[in-house]
Design a protein around this nucleic acid. Structure first.
Lengths: 203, 203
DNA sequence: AATAGACTAAAATACCAAATTAGTCAAAAG
DNA sequence: CTTTTGACTAATTTGGTATTTTAGTCTATT
């Protein structure tokens, strides 16, 4: 296998999950057959199994791609910033915005209420949880080092961060059910500002 | 109809929904029949329909009772307190604790994944949303009047509060799925403290 | 390496009969 | 006049079965 082959294979995988993503959003996961996906990429169904060994794996790849995109967006939004406060703010706002963008697919998964898919979805969501915890913990600990935030114990910081991601996750699920969330944007920003002030001052 | 009759009727209604509550928790909503509930209160099925005109109404009454209990607990926990900070803290902690207590029933409803019941459950949850928003808004506005919190515009306060209840709700749903949440307790307290500090100081 | 057609096993769907169960009503009991 | 009940019906749910669709495999082809 040459390097060009590897690139081509990656390209095909990309095409497959892009097609799958569109179909899943339009028709739901159960109503989308492997034949549908194969047709969409102009191949026979059997060819799909050369790239993914099951439909579940295709679904996993689709959701995982969305997760990666969100994580990268957040990373990009904080990497060139020195202030821990700004990093925190960007972290939450970017997360909130990104999730809003991906809402269509999430709605299909959750509202299609097939337990199997929802479980996998939560499993993947959980995978990014550890990442979020590590990121937030580092941001806050750095902010303490900078004297930007007041000092707190590392254990305390961990407890805080784990509740923060719990709230984040909760807001995500909430977004799925709420009809209109455009006005919440401003509230989210305000809440973050208050919280950051709390990390800076007091006691 | 005499006043004693009214009291007796209320008593019977109470018995019915208490029995229903237990049965719902044990066997789930669909597996609990009206006959089961009637047997539990020692009456014939038809008698239930004298008090509630449908099974749905019984279910509604059960969930609504839990909602009321939570609201009363919170009211009790803040009514004799002057400090807005303490009121805020008690509000969140009491809410968190109460929801943890009611978790069994919630799990049965959510995990039994019958769309009909989940929808009603969310509808009732939404009804307490307005109450929560009003309460929290008043607490914060009072805190501003006391000079306990720094001044913010009323519109800003509303935006903040609506996001806070969104996060609260999100945490609730999250509790249902999480196995162990005992350790979150401390984190919740810390996050509230930081948030309250943010309301007090800064900018 | 990559694709596809023919195939199988598993799952979803459709259908129907039987059984449960929600909800009604008229009559009885207190 | 309030409350309860048993007998009844209409609506759902269940269980079993035949049929179709679909996931996934295997072999052959390019």
């Amino acid at each position: 296998m040459k390097t060009t082959d590897l690139i081509k294979e990656e390209q095909t995988r990309k095409e497959i999950i892009t097609a799958a993503q569109e179909l899943f959003q339009k028709y739901g996961i159960d109503k989308t057959t492997m034949d549908d996906i194969a047709d969409a990429v102009g191949k026979g169904k059997s060819s799909l199994y050369y790239y993914y060994k099951s439909k579940e794996e295709v679904f996993y790849a689709v959701v995982n791609k969305e997760k990666d995109e969100i994580m990268h967006s957040i990373s990009d939004a904080i990497k060139d910033i020195d202030s821990a406060s700004e990093q925190l703010k960007n972290f939450f706002l970017t997360h909130f915005n990104q999730v809003r963008k991906k809402l269509n697919l999430y709605s299909v998964i959750i509202k299609g209420n097939a337990k199997k898919h929802i479980d996998l979805f939560y499993k993947i969501q959980k995978e990014s949880l550890d990442w979020q915890i590590t990121m937030l913990k580092n941001i806050i600990l750095n902010g303490i080092k900078n004297r930007e935030f007041k000092k707190i114990k590392e254990k305390e910081c961990e407890a805080i961060v784990s509740v923060l991601v719990m709230m984040l996750q909760g807001m995500d699920s909430n977004l799925v059910f709420a009809k209109d969330n455009s006005q919440n944007m401003i509230g989210v920003e305000k809440v973050i500002e208050v919280f950051i002030n709390g990390l800076k001052y007091g006691r």
